[in-house]
Amino acid sequence: MKLLLLALALAIPGIARAITVDDMLDHVDKNLTYDSRESSVRMTVVKSGTTKSYLMHSFGRGAEEMAMEYLEPARDKGTKMLKKNDELWMWLPSVEKTQKISGHMLRQGMMGSDMSYEDLMEQSTWRDAYTGTVVGEETLDGRKVWKVDLKAKDTTVSYPRRLIWVDQASYIPLKQELYALSGMLLKTWTMSDIRTVGDRQFAYKMVVEDKVQKNSRTEITFESVAFAVPLEEEVFSTRWLER
């Protein structure tokens, strides 16, 4: 039944609102979460005039495990990180040794970027965390989007309000505005270059912009991504770091 409604929604703009927001969020969540994933991504950090660019290759399993290797720049090539539940391990080619990072160093941003591990790892689904209201339809980058106002269901959610522009075709939030409790805009997160990967839609480009501190943003471009990848157990182990 839902599928029929969906089909109708795609065909007839006026009926778009017939989709429940929960369903919409379900779709969005489905695109954004994964059981396993392998990807190659380029991250560019811009902060007060300086720009640094990194190329990383990573494996991820759910929210708990992630193994990442830096491929570029040359200086960082070979640096590997392993996150397993709450533990973080690092391998630096200049040292050639697996080192466990003690608890209190974990708070820092990755490579000096705007994204803390927390931001990346936040995996509670939007559907569970937010109540949404569709407030309109717009066109963004030539695509039709729903503008949805998400309000956090409880006070523990990181971003009390998100304004999201969901692409009607792919259910990817092309743009998000992340708000503080006070209503101040903290960050914007845009996604673009949407492609089909397996049974989902995925945005190959993301830009996170700090709206509080001027001239501070991070760009992420996926060079390749695959889901439901069979992952060897070994990938999430210190042995992988040493290879």
Partner: peptide
């Protein structure tokens, strides 16, 4: 094994 930073903030070991 010393772990510090490079001037761009990325971890550096020696």
């Amino acid at each position: 094994i010393l772990t510090g930073q490079r001037q761009d903030g990325s971890p550096s070991g020696m």
